[in-house]
Structures are given as C-alpha cells and as structure tokens.
C-alpha cells in the first residue's frame, strides 16, 4: 500500500504539492489524474525518493522508499521512458538494474519476453522508438516481481496494441493483489483502465473516488422515445420528473431514472421505443473539476482563419 501524509513540496515561491494525503490500496488499478502542472510527477518523485518533500511523508508498505533495501523486489516504477543510456543494449540496461538488486540474468530475459522486446534485447536503446522505450521501462519495473507498481504516463508513445497490452498487464497485476498506481492527464484513458481515481489540481487533492461513482454522480437525464409523448409526459410529470420535449418529439426527463420511467410507461400501457440514461462524459466531468486548477489551458477564442 502507498500512503501519503500531508505531503508538501515547495520550489521557492511555488507550491507544487500542497498537504496531499491519500492511500493507494492493493488489488485495484488506481489512476492519478490531473492537468499538466498539477503536481502528479512531483508527487511520484517524492514517493520514490527522487525529490525531497518540504514536509509530510510518502510511505510504501509503511516505509520511506529510501529505507527499502533492494527496492526493486518491492516497488517497480517508470517515471521517464527515455531514462536509459542510449549506448547500452536493452539487455545490459536491465542487467545493470538487476545486478544492483541481486536479481538473476534469467529474470532479465523473462521480463524482456513478457514485454515483447526479446527480439531486440541486444540492440542499443538509442535506436528504440518511444513505445519500445516505454516497454523497456515497464520491463525494468517488473524485474523484481514487485508488490507495488508506479507508472508515470505509461501509455505515452504506445500504439493501440501497446495501450491494450498495458491495460491488460495493469489489470492482471492488480488482480494478483498488487498495488498499481498510474498517472495520466487523459480522463478518456483512465476511464477504461483504472478502477479508482485520485484527481489533483494545483497540488491539492480534488477527488478520491471510483470511476463508477464518478459516472453515477454526474448522470444527468434520460432520453425517452415514445410515439405517445404527451401522455407519457403527463404520467412521469405526475411522478415528479421534469420533462422537456425535443424538436424530434423525444422526451428528456430529469428527476427519474430509466427503470422508473420504464415501469411507469408499462403501467400506463404506453409503448416506449427507447430509453437512454445520459450522463456527462467522464471527460466533461474531469474538465469541470479541474477547470480552476489547470495551470495551463488553451483557448480557441480569438482564433480565426
């Protein structure tokens, strides 16, 4: 488990991370989400001992990262896909990491096979594409068969097959009871990959929830298609719903969920051709939540052709 307690990082007058506290539990894939400059990478670097917190602490399995001997056996992390010496081969790069933690050469071959890089094991990393470097980073994270996996923007540079591979890999790691934390600034990616999301903005925790809860909370209305719109409007208005009729004659009902509308229509003998619960997309919700916290946001106003 990863535990952050009042973690704070200040660079001069800039407060990058502001009294951040949360837990990342094992057995689920947790997404760490926020706009650019929100403090995601800084938080992860503090978790992993690369940056020193100004105050507070980050604990992994109850200990600071730099208190763990041979940490690759407990924590696997990728913070920068491009962080391998370009002159070394993939095999040697992993071999150096393995040697520092008493991990055998056989394990290096196994993880290269696992990430699909065994056929380029003896090629220099400098010739790798970004996607191949991401895979190499993930191979390094899996070297020690760790219980905790931390990945910063792991899908950057991966093609569709690679992204699918990452998703299935992370899910299987979580299913084995490991703690999996990955960061992203893309809600669309998180929506299909993670079970739980931690959303930060301007270094502060905005939301700690599950993807399902988030989706439910922002459910907006139900679109109803019926040939007897006026009658159904009367029925469900009596039951407390507010109804708007579209130009196409469809109903948009607020205040009742889809099963209740369906039941009411059936009881009144009114046929229903379509019943669609509509919610804000997770992307909309995310942008709404982080709007004030976004450090950099472009505008289309004033752009003319």
């Amino acid at each position: 488990m990863i535990e952050l307690v009042e973690l704070t990082k200040r660079y001069g007058s800039t407060l990058a991370v502001d009294r951040l506290s949360f837990e990342v539990r094992p057995g689920v894939v947790t997404g760490y989400l926020g706009p650019n400059g929100a403090g995601k990478s800084t938080t992860m670097r503090m978790m992993l001992g690369l940056h020193r917190p100004t105050s507070g602490q980050a604990l992994i399995g109850g200990r600071r990262y730099d208190e763990i001997g041979h940490p690759l056996h407990e924590v696997g992390a990728v913070l920068d896909a491009d962080a391998a010496h370009p002159g070394r081969t993939a095999s040697v790069h992993l071999g150096c990491l393995a040697r520092s933690n008493g991990i055998s050469r056989a394990r290096v071959s196994a993880v290269l096979e696992q990430v699909g890089l065994s056929n380029v094991a003896d090629k220099r990393v400098g010739g790798f594409s970004l996607g191949m470097k991401q895979r190499l980073g993930i191979a390094g994270a899996l070297l020690g068969d760790p219980g905790v996996v931390v990945l910063d923007e792991p899908v950057n540079g991966l093609d569709a097959a690679g992204i699918r591979w990452i998703r299935s890999t992370l899910r299987s790691l979580a299913a084995e009871g490991r703690t999996v934390l990955l960061s992203s600034h893309l809600m669309s990616e998180m929506a299909v990959t993670v079970d739980r999301v931690l959303i930060i903005g301007k270094g502060r925790l905005i939301e700690d929830t599950s993807v399902a809860e988030m989706r439910d909370r922002f459910e907006r209305d139900v679109l109803v298609r019926t040939p007897r719109a006026a009658e159904l409007t009367a029925v469900i208005t009596r039951l407390g719903s507010t109804v708007t009729i579209t130009e196409d004659g469809d109903l948009i009902a607020v205040g009742m969920d889809a099963p209740a509308i369906g039941d009411a229509a059936a009881a009144a003998g009114i046929p229903v051709h379509g019943l669609t619960p509509r919610s804000a997309t997770l992307e909309d919700v995310y942008l709404e939540m982080t709007d004030e916290a976004a450090e950099y946001r472009a505008t289309t106003e004033g752009i003319t052709r």
Partner: peptide, 8 residues
C-alpha cells in the same frame, strides 16, 4: 533516475 530507483 533508474539508478536511484534501484539504489535509493
């Protein structure tokens, strides 16, 4: 970075 992750 990877070196410090391996030997923090």
């Amino acid at each position: 970075g990877p070196s410090l992750l391996a030997v923090p």
